[in-house]
Simulated scan of single mutants.
Amino acid sequence: MDIVKVAGRYPSMMRSLHWLVAILVLATWPLGLMIGYTKESVKLDFYLIHESLGFLVLWIMLVRVGVRLTSDVMHPPQPAMERYAARSVHGLLYLFLIIMPVSGFLATNAHGFPLVWFGLVPIWSPVGKTPDIAPIFSAIHAWSAWILLGLFALHIGAVLLHHVIKRDATLYRIL
């Protein structure tokens, strides 16, 4: 199949942002899980990398939302239930890919650890050290991570459904 000629292929900017976010999330998510199992001597380094990548995901997602809202994407015909499921999962992925880094950023700030992005750029803290609300932001961040994992599983399941079972061109739209 000639990928370049697939009907309804996403614009190159949307495809690039999609794969950039995917790579960053696939690096950031497990890194966040590993923090709890790291030695104290390197724990802060893991946090710095995790938070910095997460903050990068936030900004790329904001750009991605803008690109999505201003791009004219042609959708191939599909059953109403599939269209509803696809739009719902995509919308929730976008939402949680914003909620997760925001809640993580606010949690670390509220715990008293301001972000210095990649160890170079200090980021202003909108909440400062506020231990009373830090656990709330941490809980939102943790729950968002698991919800995002579930949405990712649904997304990959749909990719497999279309590519392996239906054998249609859906996957090629984003490649």
Rank of each mutant, 00 (worst) to 15 (best):
I3V: 13
R9L: 02
P11Q: 02
S16N: 15
L17E: 08
W19D: 05
V21Y: 02
T28P: 07
W29F: 08
Y37W: 12
S41G: 07
V42G: 04
L44I: 13
L44D: 13
L48H: 08
I49W: 07
I49K: 07
S52V: 08
S52E: 06
F55C: 03
L56V: 11
V57I: 13
W59G: 10
L62K: 05
G66A: 09
T70F: 10
S71W: 10
V73D: 14
M74Y: 15
P77N: 11
P79R: 10
E82P: 09
E82Q: 11
A86H: 04
R87W: 09
V89Y: 03
H90C: 08
L93E: 03
F96G: 00
F96H: 00
I98Q: 05
I99H: 01
P101Y: 00
V102Y: 07
L106A: 00
A110F: 04
A110K: 01
F113G: 03
P114G: 03
L115C: 02
W117H: 10
W117N: 09
G119D: 03
G119T: 04
P122T: 03
T130D: 14
A134Y: 07
P135F: 01
P135D: 02
I136A: 06
F137T: 00
S138G: 11
S138W: 05
A139C: 07
A139Q: 10
I140Q: 01
I140F: 03
A142R: 01
S144K: 01
W146Q: 07
G150M: 02
L151K: 03
L161M: 11
L161N: 09
R167C: 14
R167F: 15
A169T: 15
T170M: 12
R173P: 02
I174Q: 12
